[in-house]
């Protein structure tokens, strides 16, 4: 059975590039692209929602 991938929406207008989501993601799904966070490896996402929980800027929305 194919694994259902979550959607990670990053609102670039809100992101201030603090690196919190990138550092605290346990499977290193996210990376910095310039000043904002971006999804690098969605396959590795374990839907722990840490990025959404910790983002201080309301910039990440994860739909598992």
């Amino acid at each position: 059975m194919e694994k259902k991938l979550p959607t990670i929406e990053i609102i670039e207008k809100y992101c201030k590039g603090c690196h919190i989501c990138v550092e605290f993601c346990p499977t290193k799904v996210l990376e910095m692209q310039g000043f904002v966070a971006a999804v690098k490896n969605l396959d590795a996402c374990i839907k722990c929602m840490q990025c959404e929980l910790r983002c201080p800027d309301f910039a990440i929305k994860v739909t598992p």
């Binding site: 809100y14 201030k16 590039g17 603090c18 690196h19 910790r54 201080p56 800027d57 309301f58 910039a59």
Partner: peptide
Amino acid sequence: KLPHIWCPGCGHGIVMK
């Protein structure tokens, strides 16, 4: 109202959540 005025990495946004 967003984005808010707090600096990058400021924990206030986390507390607001």
